[in-house]
Amino acid sequence: MSFPVSAGLLDALVLAIVSREDTYGYKITQELREAMDMSESTLYPVLRRLQKDECLETYDMEYMGRNRRYYRVTAKGNAQLNLYRQEWLEYKKKIDKVMGMGISI
């Protein structure tokens, strides 16, 4: 992909994925990869940062005889996600305008 992904955008995507359904690291990576070319080593620092910023929290659940760490969006994370969505809309509108992608009023 010719467009680099910023840390903010990555945060937003991860929050959006986890907000749909509590999920675990491997699955988040797979879902992100549907949208972008991303190394498997990229996600852990993002998850850790979001956790530290109290946007995500974790809990462990047993899966096939082993533990799996699930991520869940906190109230703060949800607020942040809404903010990101708003920002994205603004950003998209501006880029679309310059790119000449359709008419926007």
């Binding site: 840390a7 945060d11 940062r49 942040q80």
Partner: peptide, 28 residues
């Protein structure tokens, strides 16, 4: 190295939108 540098930066790569939300006390 990647993990360590992230942790030592203390999340300096955090989003630039942080200041926009009043309730959000990120350190990035």
């Amino acid at each position: 190295e990647k993990i360590i540098s992230e942790i030592n930066e203390g999340g300096a790569a955090s989003s630039k939108y942080v200041p926009a939300s009043p309730g959000y006390a990120g350190n990035g």
